[in-house]
Structures are given as structure tokens and as C-alpha cells.
């Protein structure tokens, strides 16, 4: 069962990386507006729980770090906490409605950006928000896409653990 979940998450990660590559070809700054790797972490954390979410968060974060010239491990740390909290919160509150899932993803993505920014500032004394303005839209666009995916995946019984 664990192997199957691992393979599923692996396919999710590769799909996210492939879509990111595709988006880059459409617009050079497209990846600033959306974080598909965070979405993979949140979706699997809700499905499999906080531990799986934290583990997957570490993996996805380190993959993101390897595509960035920044400090290796910052995204790993931010996504680990995101994955853990996504799994924990989804056990405590009902996130079945699209609005609730939207709020959950929005809050988690904002939190992830803040954790990342704090550590980036703490280590390099540089501001994360020097880059493009797309990052300000990231929580909104990621949560819109995420809540839409939640609806579709629920229809196909993705969140029901057999």
C-alpha cells in the first residue's frame, strides 16, 4: 500500500515538474504565479495524513531547491511544515466544500511563502519579494486550481483510503 502511495506521489511530482516546464514555454514568469509542487504536497497530505504530507513536503521542497540557486533546504523546510499542517488540519476540520478547501490551500500557500521568506531573509539578508510580482498572486491562483482539483478528485474517490 505504501509503495503504491509512493508511486502515486512520484507520478504527481513528475506531472507537476512537466507542467511547470510547459508553463515556462508559454510564459517565462508563469511559474511565479502557481506552485504545483505545493499542491501535490497538500493533496497527498489530505489523502494520506500529516506524516506522509511532511515526508512528501521534504522531497518536493528539495526538488524545488535543486531548481533554484538559493539556499538548499529552505523550500524543503517550508514544504515539510506545509505538508504536516495540511494533513493535521484536514483531520481536525471538514474541508469537503470547495470554499473550505480553497481557504485551506490559500492559508497553507501563504504560510509556506512566509516561512520561505523568513529563512531566506535570515540567512542572506535579502528579500524574496525582489523578484517578479507574480508571487503575490501565487496563493490565490494555486488555491483556485487546488479547490477545483479537490472537487474533481473527490468525484473519483481520491480522498477515500481503501
Amino acid at each position: 500500500m505504501r509503495i503504491r502511495s509512493g508511486i502515486g506521489a512520484g507520478i504527481g511530482i513528475i506531472t507537476a515538474v512537466v507542467i511547470h516546464t510547459f508553463l515556462e514555454k508559454i510564459s517565462i514568469s508563469a511559474n511565479e504565479y502557481i506552485s504545483l509542487l505545493s499542491l501535490v504536497v497538500i493533496l497527498y497530505a489530505v489523502k494520506k495524513g500529516e506524516l506522509f504530507g511532511a515526508g512528501l513536503g521534504t522531497v518536493c521542497g528539495l526538488i524545488q531547491d535543486s531548481f533554484s540557486a538559493g539556499i538548499y533546504g529552505i523550500s524543503g523546510l517550508a514544504k515539510t511544515l506545509t505538508g504536516f499542517l495540511a494533513g493535521y488540519i484536514s483531520r481536525k476540520i471538514n474541508i469537503n466544500s470547495p470554499f473550505r478547501s480553497f481557504i485551506l490551500i490559500f492559508v497553507l500557500v501563504v504560510m509556506e511563502i512566509l516561512i520561505w521568506s523568513f529563512f531566506y531573509w535570515f540567512i542572506t539578508k535579502g528579500s524574496f519579494f525582489r523578484g517578479g510580482t507574480g508571487v503575490f498572486f501565487r496563493p490565490l491562483l494555486t488555491s483556485i486550481l487546488g479547490s477545483f482539483l479537490f472537487m474533481i478528485l473527490k468525484k473519483y474517490k481520491f480522498f477515500i483510503v481503501p
Binding site: T21, E24, Q64, S68, G70, S75, F128
Partner: peptide, 8 residues
């Protein structure tokens, strides 16, 4: 690919 965290 460009940088995932800051494209510049």
C-alpha cells in the same frame, strides 16, 4: 528552465 524561486 528558469529559477523556481526567483526567475532573475
Amino acid at each position: 528552465s528558469l529559477d523556481f524561486s526567483n526567475l532573475y
